[in-house]
Design a protein around this nucleic acid. Structure first.
Lengths: 347, 347
DNA sequence: TTGTACGCGTTATCAC
DNA sequence: GTGATAACGCGTACAA
C-alpha cells in the first residue's frame, strides 16, 4: 500500500493491486467486488472490503473510463450560469443524469462562439460520453463536425421542429407571439422589443419574428426603431429602457426577450420617472423564480426549464446507448404568466 | 485510422498510434508534437499535423491523466448554483483556473451534508487534482479524512482565521455586526434576524453572533423571538417576513443572512400591507447583481465573491504544486452597501 | 468461485 | 531529433 509520498506535490494512492495483496486475492477478484459483488463469495468479499478500508483505497474512475471507453460523464454547455433559468435546466439535467449513474460537467460560453467551440473540444478531450449544448449558432462548423462523426449530442432551448440535429426546446416564435398578443389585447399599439442580440441568440431572433407576426396579424405597423438588440443582462435592460423611454414617441409597452432584461428595464423606466405598469407595461421571457418576488411582479412567458433539462438528458442518454436512426425533436409548451407589470395604456 | 464503428452505440476514435502510422513516425514523436512542438523538426511536425487532420485525431486527456496522474481538473463544490453569489465566485474560480490550464468541474450540495460527502467521493474518483469546497460542516469526517490524507483542498466562504484547513472567506461575524450597526445607527431597536439555518450554514451562525454582539454593545436586549432560521431561498424569506410581521410587537428592521432571503422578505412585507423601508427596513448579505435593480434597491453587506473565487483557486493551485507547510487563511473585506431599503423607524 | 494475462492511449526514459 | 518500450490502474476474456 503506497501512501502520499512527499516531495514534489505528488500524491499517490493505493490501487486494486495493493488491495489484492493485502487481501491475498487476485486483482480480478477485487475488481469483481467493486463491480459485481454478488459474484464473489461473502467470505472473500469481506476480506477484500477490509483490505480496501485498510488501504484507504479510492476507486479510480479515470482508469475505468480509460479501459471501458466510457467516462459516465456528459458535458453540459450553457451561455451563463449567472442567469437562473440555466441554473434551473442544469438542475434538471443533473437530476436525470445522476439518477442514471452519469456525472455532469458544466461549462459556460458567455454567449461567445469561440468559447463554445473551445468547450466542445475540451469536453471531447475529457472523453465525455455525450453533450447537451445551448448553442449560440445552430449552423456552426463545430456542431456540423460533431454530427458528422456521430458523436452523441442534443441541443437545448432551440426552436427546431426538424433538421439533422436532436433538439429539446420551446417554440420561441410562438412565445414571442403570445407575449405580443397579450400586450395587444390590452390595447397597446406602441410596443417595443428589447432583444438579446441576434448574433448570438437564435432564440431571441425567433421571438422577434413572433413579435413581428403578431403585430402584423393585428394590423400594427412594425417600427424598426422600437427594436433594440443588446447583451442579456440587467444593466443592458436598464440602458435599453432609458433609450426607448427617451424617444419622442415612446412605446407604451415593452417585450423583453428574457427576464433579466425585463427587470433591468423596469429599473431603467423608474429612473426616467415612469411607473410600471401605469406608464410602461413590461413583459419578460423565462419566468425565473425572482420574477414573482419583485414589485411589480413580472408578467412573462414561462419556459419549462427543468423539464427541458430532464428531457434533454433523457434523449442524450438514449442516443448514447443506441445511436438514433433519426434525430429527436421535442418542443415543450411555453405559458403566459400574468402578474402586475402589464396593464392597459393610459395614453 | 479507426472510425466510428457501428453496432452497440460504441464509438471509437483514432489514437496517436494511428497518427504515427500514417505519418510514418513513432508514437513518441506524435506525443512530442502535441506537448512540445518546438522539440521536433518542422518538417516532421507538419507531416504529423497532416496525419492528425486526416485521422480526425482527438487528444485523449483521460489517457494522459492516467499516466501523468494529473487530470488538470479541480472540483468546485457549492451549495446551490441557483444563488447568483455562487455563480459569481464560480466565475472567479474558472477564470483563474482556466488561465492556468486547469478545468473546473462543478457540483452542488443543496446544503445537504450527504450530498457534499458523496460529491467529494465522486470528485476524488474522477481524480481531480484538488477541490474548492463551500462546506455545510467544517468539522465533518469527510473533510478530516481529506486533510489526513494530504489531499489538496481549500474551503470557500468560511470564517476561519486559524485551524488546520486552508480557507478563503470573509469575516461573517464582522459582516453581521456591520449590518446590525447600520440599523442601530438609524435608531432601530426592534431588529429581527432571518437566518439561514445554523444546521447547514456556519456562515449564518457567525453572522448571527455578530448581530447579537452588536445589539449587546448598544445596550439592546437580544430577543430570541426575533430570530428565525430557514432555508436559503426566496419563498422562505417571504414566509419569514410574514411570520415576523404578524407578531404583536413587530420588528422595525430585519437583517437577512442573504439577499435571496431579503428579497423574499420584502415581498412578504408587501403582502402584509407594509412598506419597505417606511414600515420595515431590510438589509441583506451578499450583494448579488439583482440587489441594485429591484425597488427599493437593497441595502446589503457586499461579499467580494469573484475575488474569493480567484483567491481560492490561486491558493489551491499552489497547494497542488507544492504541499503547504501550514494552511493558508485569507479573509477578505465585506462592505456595507447603502441603498434604499433601510431608513429610520417611524414608530 | 477465483486467478492469469492482456489491452486500453498516453507519457517518460532510455537509446540511438 | 527521433524511435523503442515500459509503465500507469483497471476490466475482461479465458483458464483453472
Amino acid at each position: 500500500m503506497r501512501r502520499h509520498n512527499s516531495g514534489e506535490g505528488q500524491y499517490s494512492m493505493s490501487t486494486i493491486i495493493d488491495v489484492a495483496k493485502v487481501a491475498g486475492v487476485s486483482t480480478a477478484t477485487v475488481s469483481r467486488v467493486i463491480n459485481s459483488p454478488q459474484t464473489v463469495r461473502k467470505q472473500t468479499r469481506d476480506r477484500v472490503c477490509n483490505a480496501m478500508k485498510q488501504c484507504r483505497y479510492k476507486y479510480n474512475a479515470l482508469a475505468r473510463g480509460f479501459v471501458t471507453k466510457r467516462s459516465q460523464t456528459i458535458g453540459l454547455i450553457v451561455p451563463t450560469i449567472t442567469n437562473p433559468i440555466f441554473a434551473e435546466s442544469t438542475r434538471g439535467v443533473q437530476d436525470y443524469a445522476n439518477k442514471h449513474d452519469y456525472h455532469v460537467i458544466l461549462g459556460n460560453t458567455d454567449y461567445r462562439k469561440e468559447k463554445e467551440a473551445k468547450l466542445i473540444q475540451v469536453f471531447r478531450e475529457m472523453q465525455v460520453d455525450g453533450m447537451l449544448i445551448t448553442t449560440t449558432d445552430l449552423k456552426s462548423q463545430t456542431l456540423k463536425e460533431l454530427q458528422e462523426e456521430g458523436f452523441p449530442f442534443v441541443i437545448l432551448y432551440s426552436t427546431v421542429r426538424k433538421g439533422p440535429l436532436s433538439c429539446v426546446g420551446v417554440d420561441n416564435f410562438l412565445g414571442g407571439y403570445k407575449a405580443t398578443d397579450h400586450l395587444i389585447k390590452l390595447k397597446h399599439k406602441r410596443i417595443a422589443m428589447l432583444a438579446g442580440a441576434f448574433s448570438f441568440s437564435d432564440k431571441s431572433f425567433h421571438r422577434w419574428h413572433g413579435y413581428k407576426k403578431c403585430l402584423k396579424d393585428n394590423g400594427i405597423t412594425y417600427n424598426p426603431d422600437y427594436l433594440l438588440q443588446s447583451p442579456y443582462n440587467l444593466e443592458s435592460g436598464r440602458q435599453g429602457a432609458i433609450e426607448l423611454m427617451s424617444m419622442k414617441k415612446r412605446p407604451t409597452a415593452l417585450f423583453c426577450s428574457n427576464d433579466y432584461l425585463a427587470i433591468g428595464a423596469m429599473e431603467g423606466a423608474r429612473e426616467k420617472g415612469l411607473r410600471v405598469p401605469e406608464d410602461l407595461s413590461v413583459i419578460g421571457f423565462d419566468d425565473i423564480p425572482m420574477a414573482s418576488f419583485i414589485s411589480p411582479a413580472l408578467n412573462t412567458i414561462r419556459q419549462p426549464a427543468y423539464d427541458m433539462g430532464t428531457d434533454g438528458a433523457r434523449i442524450l442518454l438514449s442516443h448514447i446507448s443506441t445511436p438514433p436512426e433519426k434525430p429527436a425533436h421535442r418542443l415543450l409548451e411555453t405559458q403566459l404568466v400574468v402578474r402586475d407589470s402589464v396593464t392597459s395604456p393610459n395614453c
